[in-house]
Simulated assay, not measured.
Amino acid sequence: MITQQRILEVFKITTRIIFNLALVALLVGLLVSVGRTLLELGLAFTQPTVRLGLKDLVTNILSLVVVLELVRAFVDYFEFDRIRAEILVEVAVVFVLREMMLGLFAGEIKGLDVLVWSSGILALIGARALAIAFPYGKEKKHAG
């Protein structure tokens, strides 16, 4: 007979396997992206204008930062056995900053839109501050 404890153990093992696979996929994607970005670095010099070459470079690097934050969220899951709200908010902040910077760089965001984007970023930073001030549950202490 299958007990609730056995089902819980299977769930935990399955969750760990899935998170491990997702982390491996993110790391492989990150390594490939870094490699491609380095290989495409020459495009910044061969484009007709500096702006065209830098636009691709900036887009790739900002995307790498978002993926790095996602990898950090997965690693954090293994450390605390849950995904902390502050880490998810940090990922959201990085993603919104990326989108805002790309919009500004492309000239798509102007005037009042900058204020709206900045307000959104401030709201996310406020949410992060609240997540840090009121943590959920007790967390393991970091070594060192």
Rank of each mutant, 00 (worst) to 15 (best):
I2C: 10
T3R: 09
T3Y: 07
Q5E: 15
Q5I: 14
L8E: 14
E9P: 02
I13P: 00
I13V: 14
I13Q: 13
I17L: 11
N20E: 08
A22R: 03
A25W: 07
V28D: 06
L30A: 04
L30Y: 11
L30C: 07
L38Q: 08
L38V: 12
L41Q: 08
G42S: 13
G42H: 11
G42P: 02
L43I: 10
T46K: 13
V50R: 09
R51E: 13
G53K: 02
K55V: 09
L57N: 05
V65R: 04
V66Q: 02
V66C: 07
V66G: 01
E69R: 01
A73V: 01
D76V: 03
D76Q: 05
F80E: 05
F80D: 02
R84K: 14
E86D: 10
E86G: 00
E86Y: 00
V89D: 00
V94M: 08
F95V: 07
V96D: 03
V96I: 15
V96Q: 03
V96L: 15
R98G: 05
E99A: 15
M100Y: 09
M101R: 02
L102H: 08
L102V: 14
L102D: 05
G107F: 08
I109V: 10
K110L: 10
K110W: 06
V114H: 07
V114D: 09
L115Q: 02
S118M: 10
S118F: 14
L122I: 14
G126I: 05
R128W: 00
A131I: 00
A133H: 04
F134V: 03
P135S: 15
Y136F: 09
K138E: 12
H142D: 07
